[in-house]
């Protein structure tokens, strides 16, 4: 049996761990609220730009953007993997990376090549180990998704797509369902599916006949800009969701860890008291035995 001092030390160390996990839980809880706010605030942009894209798809535009054209043969697949930078958030990253791995295996079996764009440290490390070629990456985003930082990484993927080095692009991230539940999802980014360019159904009644926009300065650059921004908005939204998921997953994980530490402390305290009791009993009986012998 362990000595009472050993047990006391053990209890102390578990208590220290519990302090840390509890602090992390509280930090995550406060960050979670902010992350959720940001996620909600990012929604209108996505909605509006989708409406614009929907309008555009109805207009008799003379220029059709490559993002909208479906490609028959798919040889190379691009994946944008959104993960967190830090760990200690339960199975969040593992879930999304497992999803990626499953899909990637399927593609590889069909002889498709895969290239990845990694947003977040965990995904980058994983893709590096899995031997997937990473064409762009961004890590260290902090607590707020930053459009400025995302642009570069996304542009590499978009350029690869326009230059036909990629035929399809998917994005993987954790969708925030609620505080207790986040689900890993895969969405097709390119070519844009009908689902992604379906507007809210608000249509101008005046303009039933074929119509087109007035473009300033020209159709092509303006449409290009809109399309790029649309994809960026989708990625931004995914990152915002993933960040909210990360904080809530961390909060839940840290709460579980604190609870477990509490249980462990209870058990250890029980053992500690038992050994203490046993030591006292032993001492007493020795004294009594000694007195009887005298």
């Amino acid at each position: 049996m362990a000595s009472s001092r050993d047990i006391r030390n053990k209890i102390k160390s578990v208590k220290n761990t519990q302090k840390i996990t509890r602090a992390m839980e509280m930090v995550a809880a406060s960050k979670m609220r902010k992350a959720q706010d940001r996620m909600k605030k990012a929604r209108p942009y996505g909605e509006k730009i989708r409406n614009v894209a929907a309008h555009m798809s109805k207009a008799s535009v003379e220029y059709r953007h490559p993002f909208l054209a479906n490609r028959e043969t798919v040889n190379r697949v691009g994946v944008i993997v959104v993960t967190s930078d830090k760990g200690l958030c339960g199975g969040l990253n593992t879930n999304v990376l497992r999803r990626v791995l499953n899909e990637a295996r399927g593609w590889q079996n069909n002889g498709k090549q895969i290239e990845a764009c990694c947003i977040g440290n965990k995904g980058l490390g994983f893709m590096g180990r899995a031997g997937v070629s990473v064409i762009s990456q961004i890590t260290g985003l902090g607590d707020a998704p930053n459009m400025e930082k995302l642009i570069g990484a996304v542009k590499v993927v978009l350029d690869a797509y326009t230059e036909n080095r990629l035929d399809r692009v998917y994005i993987f991230y954790n969708r925030f369902v609620n505080t207790m539940k986040q689900e890993p999802v895969m969405e097709q980014l390119l070519p844009l599916t009908d689902k992604l360019i379906k507007g809210d159904g608000v249509e101008s009644k005046v303009l039933r006949s074929p119509w087109d926009y007035i473009y300033e300065p020209e159709a092509k650059p303006v449409i290009d800009d809109i399309m790029v921004r649309y994809i960026e908005a989708l990625v931004y939204q995914a990152v915002a969701e993933n960040m909210a998921s990360e904080q809530s997953a961390r909060m839940v994980a840290m709460k579980a860890a604190s609870d477990n530490a509490g249980n462990l402390i209870d058990e250890l305290t029980l053992i500690y008291n038992k050994t203490r009791q046993a030591a006292i009993t032993k001492e007493l009986s020795e004294i009594v035995g000694g007195a009887a012998a005298v």
Partner: peptide
Amino acid sequence: DEAKALEAKQRAEEAM
């Protein structure tokens, strides 16, 4: 944008 893209690409290569 171009500069940013280049940076992201370089970072990826370095990481690899």
